[in-house]
């Protein structure tokens, strides 16, 4: 009897497995274009997101992040180009069932539904075996710190609670790809921090694509990203590549009264550090930029050398950063 039950409850999982395609990339976007009337919101974006990555879609308002995201989730159909999620078109719901979790932006939860029954309904539509639905729903509710919310109506939840319930439905059933559109928008810092921790906890277990305005958040969470502007990709790559953290370091220097910064900083000594290509001093921002050959030396070693020289020259240091920071990079590109 128990054996029979086991076979029955495992059947849908087997069914899901048979629909898996062996793919290298979790998401593959080729030349997608989306027009709304005469306005072109997305203009020929191509991206490849490797499995297991946490990938950010970055850009200012109107850059095409949410439109791209909506096409990835199958809400919108591109006018041109193709999208593959785990080897399938986003609208191939049956093939992607339970393998793709989506947190849509600004989609209200059904106000009359109770949190528990909403998640149970979602889990059943995902084909999670009947006997595993309740444990799975309880698990995600616990993950979002909402285990006492079962009987609350979705309409009565605060913005932060609703966002977390929406996140819970996206994480139901251990999906292979999770799309998160502005997961922390409008949340207070504490809840935003908690949501970030939930996302971080999933790192490595699945591919996560995050569209967000919050660049510090993306820099913290993502290991790769694409910067969009006016519907096009203006830069993409690993976070280290985007922020140039593997080939430049920046040191913020505190000026000393009555002493010129150029006289105080031993620029020549810095230029003689092995594999350093260039040293620049910005007198206005009091920032020292050290550019080096990334294949020959790593940023940490360069920082060590630079700080040693500066401290010996009694230069006061107020900050050190690898690369230019994502925010600066986005500001430069968009």
């Amino acid at each position: 009897m128990a054996e029979g039950e086991q076979v029955e409850s495992d059947a849908p999982v087997e069914e899901r497995k048979t629909k898996k395609k062996p793919v290298e990339a979790a998401v593959r976007i080729k030349g997608i274009v989306k027009r709304f009337g005469i306005k072109t919101a997305v203009d020929g974006i191509s991206l490849t997101i490797q499995q297991g990555h946490v990938y950010g879609l970055i850009g200012p308002n109107g850059a095409g992040k949410t439109t791209t995201f909506s096409m990835l989730a199958g809400y919108l159909t591109p006018n041109e180009g193709t999208i593959e999620v785990l080897g399938f078109a986003p609208k191939q719901v049956d093939e992607l069932r339970g393998r793709l979790g989506v947190l849509p932006q600004d989609a209200l939860l059904p106000s009359g539904d109770k949190v528990g029954e909403f998640l149970v309904h979602m889990a059943r539509l995902q084909n999670i075996p009947k006997d595993k639905v309740l444990p799975e729903v309880r698990k995600v509710l616990e993950e979002i710190d909402g285990k006492d919310w079962w009987d609350l109506r979705c309409g009565s939840l605060s913005h932060g609670m609703a966002k977390r319930v929406a996140l819970a439905q996206a994480l139901l059933g251990e999906p292979d790809v999770v799309l998160l559109d502005e997961p922390t928008a409008g949340l207070d810092p504490k809840v935003a921090y908690e949501v970030r921790q939930i996302i971080k906890a999933r790192r490595g277990q699945c591919t996560i694509v995050i569209s967000s305005h919050n660049l510090h958040e993306l820099e913290e969470i993502c290991n790769a990203a694409a910067i969009l502007d006016r519907g096009r990709v203006v830069a993409s790559g690993s976070m280290a590549e985007l922020t140039a953290s593997s080939h430049e370091v920046h040191i913020k220097v505190a000026p000393t009264a009555g002493v010129s910064l150029a006289n105080q900083i031993p620029l020549q000594a810095l230029r003689e550090i092995p594999h350093v290509k260039r040293v620049e001093l910005d007198g206005e921002t009091h920032e020292l930029g050290v550019y080096f050959e990334r294949r020959e030396i790593d940023a940490e070693t360069v920082i060590g050398h630079v700080l040693w020289i500066l401290l010996n020259a009694r230069v006061r240091i107020s900050g050190v950063s690898k690369g230019r920071g994502l925010e600066q990079r986005v500001m430069d590109l968009t």
Partner: peptide
């Protein structure tokens, strides 16, 4: 009603439209 508040988006990744 589901289109207005975009709640439909919770369903369309799980069911055929």
């Amino acid at each position: 009603g589901e289109l207005q508040h975009r709640s439909v988006r919770y369903w369309t990744v799980r069911t055929r439209r």
